[in-house]
Design a protein around this nucleic acid. Sequence first.
DNA 1: GCTTAAAATATGTTTTCACATATATTTTAA
DNA 2: TTAAAATATATGTGAAAACATATTTTAAGC
Lengths: 93, 93
Amino acid sequence: MDNITHILQSARKAKNMTQGELGAKAGLPQSHISQIESGNIDLRLSSLQEIARLLDLDVMLIPVNLKPAIRSIISGKEGEAQKPAWRVDEGEL
Amino acid sequence: MDNITHILQSARKAKNMTQGELGAKAGLPQSHISQIESGNIDLRLSSLQEIARLLDLDVMLIPVNLKPAIRSIISGKEGEAQKPAWRVDEGEL
DNA sequence: GCTTAAAATATGTTTTCACATATATTTTAA
DNA sequence: TTAAAATATATGTGAAAACATATTTTAAGC
């Protein structure tokens, strides 16, 4: 299904959270987190935003022409200080 | 309400589309676009993605620590060639 | 200006699906 | 093996999305 939901799942696992923990913090039942991650649900924006927030992510609308540049920033090591992402462009994602 | 919906509205206007046109292309009734833009609705991810796509936008999950860098790229003129966004950082948003 | 028709946006009702609650299954580890 | 932790499934309820209609806005003609 949707790529976004897989990102949510791996972000949750990276943070060593269970569906239950995430759900509790998000104010959503564990069963939803399950449905969302398995991709059989078309979740609402507010749910997406809340879950993302708890995983230190944010929902943004990105102009398509800027996606390559932004992907390069993101793929260049998440948490720590950035390596120069402005090496004009080598390999999209 | 939510900032994202305002972005959708201004993107639509920037493209000189009516709610009806956008809705038709997105496979959504004009009445939804109205509700979405006025912010009295918590829309579903698939709707958001479809609308965004038609406005040459894409829904992305961004690590919060990278938001400043990404915002600077975005605010530096949407469509055309980028001015140096890597002037380390002056003014978040 | 005023009128009117069409375009654009908003509102009212019904239907469908996300979300809530409860329960079942699977997985982990003791 | 078994109990608890984690994830998945079943069913009921409220809100988003479909459908229809009303209102507002725009711009033409007079």
